[in-house]
Design a protein around this nucleic acid. Structure first.
Length: 528
DNA sequence: ATAGGGTTAG
């Protein structure tokens, strides 16, 4: 190779491009490229280097500027090569503009620039970002025609898109058909099994794969946690610790399992591990920790972690709000909600579930009504059945049964079990038999196997001394169909799990527990 | 230059 001044300048600029942190720096280098004539040396290749540099910039406010710059660079290339097209498609997938990525791909096809084995993974990623299975199928057929499906990256991209589109059979087909598979093929398919609800199949693949990396472990731990198999999730996490260093993703999933189960000791150990290993607490981990401590009863620690967290996202805020709601801290929750809005975080449906549930528990009726009104008009969050359910519960508790009934009648959709059960709960508290009968009819129609309604109606009639009706209800219950699912709760104390089922007396300290419970009950009835 | 796993609610 002949070392020329031009080559040195080219290499320097190439390295400088890689180090660019801002769009301004790229502009300067781009200008330099033009003025020194280096751009004309190999225009297609060098312009693409600029495009690649653009995509490595961390988007600050919006990626729109970066993309429009990238497009203008692309448009200045007279006859873009495959490499150029790949780069502009890649830029759009990286900066979350998948539709445009697909449009560039179709432009590429229409001007007969042949795609290569780099093109397909980019384009398929755009399909998965769009959630468009049909586009993926089209791309798949093109890849098949040109003969790229045997490429490992292409076939893995296809396994992935079919997995996330809940097309497990297609994902399995791709997996079985691919001549060579690697750990990524297995991981993508394991995720597909999890997403299609077949955790057993996921486990089977996990057990038989020749090599497992942290993604394999993390996928299955989170799969178990999401499928409600929390004990399995924690067990697998412990097994993982013996084999490989858990990363943030595995830690988050394990924390979620601990939170769901109330596994205080296990979750604390994870927290200790995070601190000892000086793991950077990202927004996912802070969410996991806040949720975990809140669910295990330690709302103060949850608040502490939330406040000290450097990295919060919508879920972190939601976990905090839901935690405060669970603990009955209604006023504090409203303060946090305002802080969230002021911080520029856009609330979603979960946010409002937390806020409304919190108001309900704290009896903050006016506040809830106002926020419920503003949900769509001010915050642009659509009011779903769950939110109406919260309102029915809140109004019912506050003895505003008529208002709750009016709300339900005016709803744009028909009420579901949660809405009518919410209203029924209010009727039960305030002894409103008439409305209770209507609400109960709806619940029984929508969920005939629900035993709770019958129990509630029996109690209501008993309070109203309508004994004949009590007998009728009991007869219905005994007649079958009704599943009596007993309420149950778990609490861990000093490392021992205590389990209670409604009405049981199996705990060794049952008598003592009831003495305290009765005392609390009496205390609650006394005026504060 | 290309492929895979994460948190909140229900």
């Amino acid at each position: 190779m002949v070392i020329t001044d031009q080559l040195i300048a080219y290499k320097t600029i190439n390295n400088l491009l890689k180090q660019c942190k801002t769009i301004k720096q790229i502009h300067q280098l781009h200008a330099h490229f033009i003025t020194t004539g280096l751009l004309s040396l190999n225009p297609c290749h060098n312009q693409s280097k600029i495009l690649i540099a653009v995509t490595t910039i961390k988007p600050t406010s919006s990626s729109t500027n970066l993309l429009s710059y990238a497009v203008s660079v692309f448009n200045s290339i007279p006859n873009p090569s495959t490499f150029c097209f790949n780069t502009i498609i890649r830029a759009h997938t990286l900066l979350s503009s998948p539709l445009n990525a697909l449009l560039f791909f179709s432009q590429m096809r229409s001007v007969s620039v042949p795609p290569d084995f780099h093109s397909f993974p980019f384009v398929l990623k755009a399909c998965s970002q769009l959630g468009s299975l049909s586009s993926a199928q089209t791309i798949h057929s093109q890849a098949l025609k040109i003969g790229f499906v045997s490429d490992l990256f292409v076939s893995n991209s296809l396994i992935h898109i079919y997995s996330v589109s809940h097309r497990l059979r297609d994902a399995l087909y791709m997996f079985d058909e691919s001549s060579h598979r690697d750990v990524v093929s297995y991981n993508a398919l394991i995720d597909g099994c999890v997403k299609s609800g077949d955790v057993a199949k996921a486990r089977e693949l996990f057990d038989k794969m020749p090599f497992r990396d942290s993604v394999s472990w993390g996928t299955l731990v989170s799969g178990y946690a999401k499928s409600g198999l929390c004990k399995e999730a924690i067990q697998l996490f412990h097994e993982m610790e013996l084999n490989i260093r858990p990363d943030n993703i595995a830690l988050v999933s394990a924390l979620s399992a601990c939170a769901q189960l109330g596994e205080l000791e296990c979750g604390k150990r994870i927290h200790d591990y995070i601190q000892e290993s000086r793991i950077r607490v990202d927004s996912f981990l802070s969410t996991g920790l806040v949720d975990f401590y809140a669910k295990c009863g330690y709302i103060e620690i949850a608040i502490e972690i939330f406040e000290s967290s450097q990295d919060k996202n919508l879920c972190t805020w939601n976990a905090m709000l839901v935690g405060l709601a669970m603990h009955g801290h209604g006023q504090l929750l409203l303060d946090y909600f305002s802080r969230m809005i002021n911080a520029g975080v856009e609330p979603d449906g979960v946010t409002f579930l937390g806020v409304l549930a919190g108001c309900s528990h704290a009896g903050l009726v006016d506040e809830a009504r106002k926020l419920f009104d503003k949900m769509e008009s001010v915050y642009g969050v659509s009011r779903e059945l769950k939110h109406y359910g919260c309102m029915a519960d809140l109004l019912g508790r506050a003895d505003l049964i008529k208002e709750a009934m009016d709300m339900i009648n005016k709803m744009p959709m028909s009420g579901d079990v949660s809405v009518w059960s919410g209203l029924l709960g209010g009727c039960r508290i305030h002894g409103n038999v008439e409305i209770a009968v209507q609400a109960a009819d709806h619940v029984m129609e929508l969920k005939p196997e629900d035993g709770g309604v019958y129990k509630m109606m029996a109690d209501l009639y008993a309070d109203a001394e309508r004994w004949e009706d009590v007998v009728k209800i009991r007869t219905c219950m005994d007649a079958g169909k009704v599943k009596k699912i007993a309420g149950c709760s778990l609490i861990q104390l000093n490392g021992v799990m205590h389990e209670f089922v409604a009405g049981d007396d199996l705990h060794p300290q049952t008598d003592d527990i009831y003495v305290v419970l009765n005392a609390i009950g009496k205390h609650q009835n006394e005026p504060c």
